[in-house]
Design a protein around this nucleic acid. Structure first.
Lengths: 339, 339
DNA sequence: TTGTACGCGTTATCAC
DNA sequence: GTGATAACGCGTACAA
């Protein structure tokens, strides 16, 4: 079989340097010493021919791709920028490459995953981008996985990195209650199957309970962690519902923006009439008017940590089965505080 | 040489299905017909063994990676989410994978590019993530490249995708002049070596010229396309400068946010005292208070288009040397309009 | 310290 | 329509 190949191979370098391919390989991978004289000639030849090792050939020979994968549900939300950024930093520092792909768990079942053991050494899985079966399947084959914002399937021990949701939410809602005297607090929930969303709802309920405020199902609407949805639902709520309220806590900052907009358009003043607080502390939250009181989620750190976990996994180190990163309440103006 | 290999190969499938590896390969790649009987047995064997073709082996044999690369300067700015999203959509649709990496042109020269012909079939290069030499170098080897938000080096014809900056800026600034009677318009410029930034400045100057407003160097400050920088510079301007002004045009929305904040903190009302307009139309711009008048940059479309260009390049189709995507003025409240 | 030769998993060529 | 087998470019056990 004859195949044209415009690229320069290790063989060309070997010929140019007057040594064998094995020596070239050794020099490149530092897998053994070569004499200074030879090293110099190799260096020169590489420079001369502009040689770059062919990744695929390397992968095939070493059984390692030096690539890690990241599976996301989508890339639209501003939330993903810091996440990917954190991951990419670690990956690059380790001399690896990053393959990103989107995939929703409800995709047609017969679809091949774009990322897996066939093209990466390990992967980071965001929340519900994968079905539980698929996660288990990959994990059972010994493929290194780290979960983000999602807990390990029952009975398995797959490392996961997530953040403290409930307690921070509870404290923030309590802030609305005790420091601002709010008692009728509307909760804007996220997707029902999202773990973060669930914990935040529990935190909200906990706060009510702590202060003997009866929970009112009327005071919960669905924002789906999407600004537009939250906006629409809020508008609808304002039109339809007779239920009065004096504060809004949203499971995410993105929704909070939509909520504030709906409120302002309806003539409410934030925070004078209605206190508003969110969760995430997106980069823009501090710049809103009024600046948004929220919970800071260390999203870039989540990415960074998950990547580090994955590399620990790859190098056979011990890995914490679950890492819960601390969150922090950020008091700004939208709750009613003067800061 | 003995090597453990937990993964199932095409040979295993061949044995299981009772045919040769060649037939399996043909079936998988649809490169030739196989009898229905055989097809069924293969299908079964693949299912049974959970076979997935090894990417690296494929790459080595076909000389194609089915991966395209994206080189960015960073991933922090909200601007990148839609860009990557658009690219990813096309890439996935084509059955390719996406490798992303960050790289700043001023990195140490001896550093190996994380992405190149050694691990991708082609790449998309964002603005100044690469030095001109490197671009030329890659291109000279026949490696498919598409440039984003950056023009082709002189004398070369590398496809590029960018947006219309100058005219839209000019019209928007003219809107401030003619519809709102502004004459002392502060310009917040971006990085000096950024082409978008340069064109927007030209548009700003053009508008002044069109209306016989003398340009005043005092009325230009540097925001570097970064919110924090713009904020600081604005604060400094307000403290130091005696120059009066009645409007601010920023080269990007991110800076506009910082500007508005500085203005409001200093006691100015936007837009009553000062009109503000930006450029980009970030997803959040409509939700600011006041909603930001700006120019819509079709960032996701830029990504999508660049990816399509690249695939045209890969398939040997004719490719437009330069694609200039139209932008559109978005009038909201921050300029003074009632909408 | 260096060279030879084989294998990594797949595709593609040639024969049947 | 199917099978045998030589590449693809590199790493590495083994020999020298």
């Amino acid at each position: 079989m004859t195949r044209r190949s415009s690229s320069v191979t290790i063989r060309d370098v070997a010929r140019e340097a007057g040594v064998s391919v094995a020596t070239i390989s050794r020099y490149i991978n530092q897998s053994a010493r070569v004499s200074d004289d030879v090293a110099e000639r190799i260096e020169l030849a590489i420079e001369e021919l502009n040689y770059v090792p062919h990744a695929a050939a390397r992968h095939l020979a070493t059984q390692r791709t030096r690539v890690i994968g990241l599976l996301l549900t989508n890339m639209h939300n501003d939330f993903f920028a810091p996440l990917v950024s954190g991951i990419e930093a670690v990956v690059q520092h380790q001399g690896y490459n990053l393959l990103v792909a989107t995939h929703r768990a409800d995709s047609h079942l017969d679809i091949q995953l774009p990322i897996g053991s066939h093209n990466t050494d390990g992967m980071i899985v965001f929340a519900d981008s994968l079905r539980e079966d698929d996660i288990i399947g990959l994990h059972r084959n010994g493929f290194p996985i780290v979960l983000i914002h999602r807990s390990t399937p029952d009975g398995y021990e797959i490392p996961s990195v997530t953040i403290e949701n409930k307690d921070a939410t509870c404290r923030l809602v309590e802030h609305l209650i005790t420091d601002h005297g709010r008692k009728r607090i509307l909760f804007v929930r996220g997707p029902a199957n999202q773990e973060d969303s669930q914990w935040r709802e529990l935190g909200y309920l906990q706060a009510l309970e702590n202060h003997d405020i009866p929970r009112d199902p009327q005071l919960i609407i669905c924002g789906e962690f999407e600004r537009e949805v939250a906006y629409r639902e809020m508008v609808k709520f304002l039109e339809d519902s007779q239920t009065d309220f004096d504060a809004v806590f949203t499971g995410d900052d993105d929704s909070a923006i939509g909520i504030v907009n709906a409120l302002v358009e309806a003539g409410y003043r934030v925070p004078e009439d209605i206190s508003v607080a969110g969760f995430d502390d997106l980069r823009l939250s501090a710049f809103l008017t009024p600046p948004l009181t929220t919970v800071n989620a260390p999203t870039e750190l989540v990415g960074r940590t998950a990547a580090e976990q994955l590399f620990d996994l790859l190098t056979g180190k011990d890995v914490d089965p679950i890492i819960l990163l601390p969150t922090e309440i950020v008091i700004r103006r939208s709750c009613g505080c003067f800061v």
